[in-house]
Design a protein around this nucleic acid. Sequence first.
DNA 1: GTAAATTAGATTGTATGCAATTTAATTGAC
DNA 2: GTCAATTAAATTGCATACAATCTAATTTAC
Lengths: 153, 153
Amino acid sequence: MKGEQGNDSQLALDNQLCFLLYACSRSVIKAYKPLLDPLGLTYPQYLVMLVLWEWHDEAPQLPTVKALGSRLRLDSGTLTPLLKRLQQLGLIGRQRASNDERQVHLELTREGVAMRDRARHIPQQLACETGADLNELVSLRTRLNTLLQQLES
Amino acid sequence: MKGEQGNDSQLALDNQLCFLLYACSRSVIKAYKPLLDPLGLTYPQYLVMLVLWEWHDEAPQLPTVKALGSRLRLDSGTLTPLLKRLQQLGLIGRQRASNDERQVHLELTREGVAMRDRARHIPQQLACETGADLNELVSLRTRLNTLLQQLES
DNA sequence: GTAAATTAGATTGTATGCAATTTAATTGAC
DNA sequence: GTCAATTAAATTGCATACAATCTAATTTAC
């Protein structure tokens, strides 16, 4: 009886971490929504655009679906329809690689590149809205990064 | 030009927190999967069962869909079909309240109560698998709780 | 060199999330 | 007391997530 109670509370405490991750993640996504609506993007679509914008700066070669999925931890079952929607929006293009026909390379259209300017204000605006301490947010980021590494190993 | 670069990196940093929340949350849910599969539960269904098990201990009156949604930050659009599945599985019952016909009260079936014994080992097992420091996890939980409060205010 | 194994994407099916609307019941204003 | 707001669930529609399967292309074993 006493043992069972102990197990239950331990379970609940540990559980609250996973639930808090789940609840915080959804809550942050909700906070993004009013900022992303004017761009016509969902949150996962916004993450894809962020990766493509970063790649656009750093690499001459554009990423494949595989490389994008590796960065975002999403598979083709999620990305294929999402990327088709971004293509419908005129933000990206998709090209089969000529040297390996299995791969699909992504590219930003002119509008896709241009949207970056309209997105630049978003992170700051969100940080202001939460009113959280910046050092606290950086510390949290570091800890979550460590946790993610542990979960993936 | 320099200003734009500064905005971009600031954006990327802040973004990594929201992305890490998103990635960690999904990664933790994946880690739960092999432990929940034997119970035939998905992760959101498991969260619902956790709330009902807690209520079962503490309150004589069973929660409504509204109260459950308030606890999990989920609305009826998500919960109604999920609860119907739990009912199909024979784990819960749903009863219209007689004093207010708009409300639906939830109850655990005998099997729903019994499943708790088969779920008790899950949190410990998961904590062991991640190999994370317990104090670290508690600290992270506290910080996420603070963040969630800020996001919801 | 060719068959088997592997790989990258696409597809299918199930289960969330959530905005928006609908329905039915209750409450409030007057 | 009655009609307008409000409320609790349910429903609808859209966009993820993700397991499982499929297809086509490439590698590997031999």
